[in-house]
Design a protein around this nucleic acid. Structure first.
Lengths: 346, 346
DNA sequence: CTGTTAGCGCCTTCAC
DNA sequence: GTGAAGGCGCTAACAG
């Protein structure tokens, strides 16, 4: 007399069946499942045996209904195929899993609409907390949805008007450092390709870029700044455009892992040699930078640590910490390699 | 008199509050939420307004309890930082999302214990279906757990004794093709680095490798076959070992995206030139293969299509399709590039 | 077309 | 140390 679920699956054993099988009441089974100490060892053993035999797993929905807890953390990222975000997830996992939380990752594909959909799904599912990387700080619907969450949210590297803990990465200073280096080598026209101005990394990189030039008393040619999107295609297209322009740069900063990828490809397709024809700096993908020849100077960050820190902030809140939003800033490193050199005299 | 949840969050509005606010009964609210047609337009509008104002989202746990549906699909992958799996997830998403299903990705980090933990969590949470890529076909605990799921499961590229639909990728023939090419060019010692023999791709690649040699009437030197793990470190270590051995191969097959990465790095570190010093073939990362110089011959697969197909199989089951397990086989392509050449006379 | 009601499976008092 | 019973928020069946 098996009940067919909509999916045609087998019905799962409930606490009642375990109780019947062990010859106890459901209250006792519940106590065993909840690891309450007030159960006789012999009774506990019998219940455990019954659970194992039936393959019993407590129904999370029913449990959530009673406890208002799901032991689930939502992890929102702009792009799953980007290793940068995957590493953050890994780092967060290492902190959250030991506490019994499960991380569920969801990729928005950089669509604010999908972000809203995810946040609503998370609220419906009563996820206990969220770690989110938004794809556009100006998307008000997303911000509003975060405000409604009712559970702790940790925001990664974004500037949003929300009462939430945040983990920032340092971008401005490392760009300044790199640009400083290039200026010292004699470069006067440097191209920057980076993310949209609607997210903090994009803004900070452009700001650092401008500041470095201004400090050196040099004018800023806006034509050399391309800061609109985070994709390999964008990186390739803008790099191509820069390098085939009338007055091309002698160095390229590809600030963003996808952009790095695309920009490097564009350089190859144009048949240019690094660093003889063009100096090149990438970001966020140290492995790639070290795989090509010559190895490429890269602005790097420890994304696993970002994940760990974010999870730590979240965990404090889950444990009931009640204080104003906290902010953590993590550094970036410039890995100097042989892809930058003095510009060729033309 | 706000109720503090354990996490300190704000209580979410329930169907009762919406009903009160709209001046209707909860039944009517439920019908509006469920998009039942049997509601007067004017009433529906009032309810919708109340929902919007309160920011109401139906409680998924309560809903799951009644309907035995969660509209959630679990997606188990061995390694989140591997783009290959991320692409599969993307493909699956495109098929499942329009049907109202949410995909939740979980990375096992190639640990069978974590796979079991995920499967149990999926069962507790009553996920409606699963798409899984196991990291070890011989892990019986995982297999047993799948058998208990009670919901449709689609298995990707694994040979497991389970009543489930499967999407396979072709590996054997493409390896044979590549080895055939190398033999024609005059190579007689070819090194293969690939995944463990405990998963189908590893086995099939080794099988294809052996078959190609046997067909050519050549002996197989087992020393040249390294098939134990799927990581960049493994790829680097084994490639290094092969190339620094007493009788090294003149060509390397790095069959696996992580392995590809590591192997290529090992070749670089040894200061060898491709293809003059060593012919090289990678797999599963066509972009990387095209980014380095010279471009590298790669065995490629359309992982997005794998995801789409898997999702399609799952969807049929979710709709109630009742028939024996189905199997889909998807092809691989050899992208011939300049990384292979005749071996240097030594 | 709308209101009322009975559980879904579990945890948690409250008795015993 | 164990059993009995209420109710979490929702859907679906039944009345009206």
């Amino acid at each position: 007399m098996s009940v067919k679920t909509p999916a045609g699956g087998r019905r799962q054993p409930t606490i009642h069946e375990v109780a019947a099988s062990a010859g106890v009441s459901i209250g006792t089974v519940s106590r065993v499942a909840g690891e309450s100490p007030r159960v006789a060892p012999e009774t506990r053993a019998r219940v455990l045996a019954a659970m194992a035999e039936l393959g019993y797993q407590p129904n999370a929905a029913a449990r959530a209904m009673r406890t208002n807890q799901t032991k689930t953390i939502g992890f929102l990222i702009p792009d799953m195929t980007n290793q940068v975000f995957a590493r953050v997830a890994q780092g967060a996992e290492t902190v959250l899993a030991p506490e019994g939380y499960m991380l569920f990752a969801f990729s928005s594909n950089r669509s604010p609409a999908r972000e809203v959909a995810f946040l609503q799904a998370a609220r419906q599912r009563q996820m206990d907390g969220l770690i989110v990387t938004l794809s556009d700080e100006t998307a008000t619907a997303t911000i509003e949805e975060i405000g409604r969450m009712g559970v702790p949210v940790v925001v990664l590297d974004r500037e949003v008007p929300v009462e939430a803990d945040v983990v920032y990465s340092e971008h401005m200073q490392s760009i300044e450092t790199v640009v400083g280096q290039l200026l010292e080598l004699g470069h006067r026209r440097i191209g920057l390709v980076t993310a949209s101005q609607n997210i903090r990394p994009g803004r900070d990189r452009v700001a650092g870029f401008r500041r470095a030039l201004e400090r050196a008393g040099l004018p800023v040619d806006d034509w050399l700044i391309r800061a609109n999107r985070q994709s390999a295609e964008y990186g390739a297209a803008e790099t191509h455009d820069l390098l085939t322009g009338a007055n091309p740069p002698t160095a390229i900063l590809a600030a963003g892992s996808d952009i790095f990828y695309g920009a490097l490809r564009a350089v190859r397709l144009l048949g240019l040699t690094i660093p003889d024809d063009i100096s090149f700096v990438g970001a966020d993908d140290p492995l790639l930078g070290d795989l090509v020849y010559p190895p490429i100077t890269v602005i790097d960050r420890d994304m696993v640590e970002v994940g760990r820190q974010a999870a730590g902030l979240l965990l404090d809140r889950l444990r009931g910490l009640d204080m104003p939003p906290r902010r953590i800033m993590l550094g970036s490193n410039v890995l100097l390699r042989r892809s930058i050199a003095a510009p060729r005299h033309r």
